[in-house]
Simulated assay, not measured.
Amino acid sequence: MAPANVGRKCRHGAILKVLATNICGSDQHMVRGRTTAPEGLVLGHEITGEVVERGPDVEFVQVGDIVSVPFNIACGRCRNCKERQTGICLNVNPGRPGGAYGYVDMGGWVGGQAEYVMVPYADFNVLPFPDRDQAREKLLDLTMLSDIFPTGYHGVVSSGAGVGSSVYIAGAGPVGLAAAAAAQLLGAGSVIVGDLNTDRLAQARSFGCETVDLTQGTLEDQIAEILGVPEVDAAVDAVGFEARAHTREGEEAPATVLNSLMTVTRAGGALGIPGLYVTEDPGSSDDEARVGTLKVRLGLGWAKSHRFTTGQCPVMKYHRGLMQAILHDRVQIAKAVNATVLSLEDAPRGYAEFDKGASHKYVLDPHGALEGVKPL
């Protein structure tokens, strides 16, 4: 816990009964020992729940509301929050801009892979669903609003993709699949997903994506086979710092994705980079990567006039619109990411299977709220 946050009063907070809380790839980095996360940290920044108690300064959120909780913790008062940059709130983390639940160096806020969780600045932070019964019915899809759906969407929007665009998404994990679904929602003409994992590529094809198996030849050649040219209009990095070389052996090469995206993105295009990069990676075999220094071909990106957008997704910028897309059946996000429900007690199995490359988005169900709930 950040020392300045110890004993901090949260009269503005609400306590939620957790109805769904998801395992994220960012959690997996910590479990693998690839961050400086301390032992005993309660994980979980993807939270959907029911308000069961509220602090005396909470005015608008009501007990009984079913709400989505952005993984960004934001005060709603600082300059960045007022400019819709809630991923880098200046008041919730004494260490640096930006806070999150159950995450290393993000202020020490307790995570939501638990039965209950406290949400600070509740009036500002939570997104109440308009109808309790509808929220319960669509809970498996709505739980994706706390992180991966807005994060994938942010990556695609940041890449400049739109109607008719060709988009390449590096990584067919849950965020990459969410980005692919977002690209389709935005009207992209061709959505191509690349990975080393054949099961995850099959999941991408299940909802209409083209795929590239990065063990089967160069990325440029495989894109050319699909599009007729070896480049795309826009690209998204949904992999991050644990990237691997595009070979059968797949040895770690943390700058691989960034460099490959600059290679295949057209001149004047953009890269959306929601994939996580860290300032410290104690588990890396590369001395420079241990302190977040990567061998990125910035000269290539400069020569092609690329634009780059990095950092946490400001979830609040997108989550209400994406909620409406789910409620009005415009997107099937739980199916796209292969949402799979586990009990809270089964979380270790979910982490182990996810670590082995299982093509699932594991959703934990602490109170049985997801019994009988199916993807849209």
Rank of each mutant, 00 (worst) to 15 (best):
M262R: 12
V257E: 01
D233T: 03
T263Q: 14
F207Y: 08
A224G: 02
G250L: 09
L261N: 01
I226N: 01
Q203H: 02
L219F: 13
A267P: 13
T263S: 12
T218Y: 00
G208A: 13
P230S: 13
L214V: 13
E251K: 12
M262Y: 09
P230H: 09
T263P: 00
E249Q: 13
G269Y: 08
A253F: 08
G269L: 09
A224D: 11
E220F: 01
L271Q: 06
L258C: 03
G269D: 10
I226T: 12
A270L: 07
F241T: 07
V236Q: 06
L227N: 01
V239R: 11
T247Q: 02
T215G: 00
F207D: 02
G208H: 08
G228W: 09
A267I: 13
R266I: 13
A255K: 01
H246L: 10
R248Y: 07
G240K: 06
L227D: 09
R266V: 14
G268V: 04
A235K: 08
A238T: 06
D213C: 05
A234D: 03
G272W: 05
A243C: 01
V229I: 12
E252S: 13
P230D: 14
G228I: 11
V264Y: 02
A267W: 05
V229K: 10
I223P: 05
L214A: 05
A204T: 03
V229M: 08
A270W: 06
A253W: 07
L227M: 12
T263G: 03
V232G: 13
E210L: 09
D213A: 00
T215Q: 14
G217V: 10
G240T: 06
A245N: 12
R205D: 00
R244P: 07
T247P: 04
R248C: 01
T265Q: 10
L219V: 13
S206E: 11
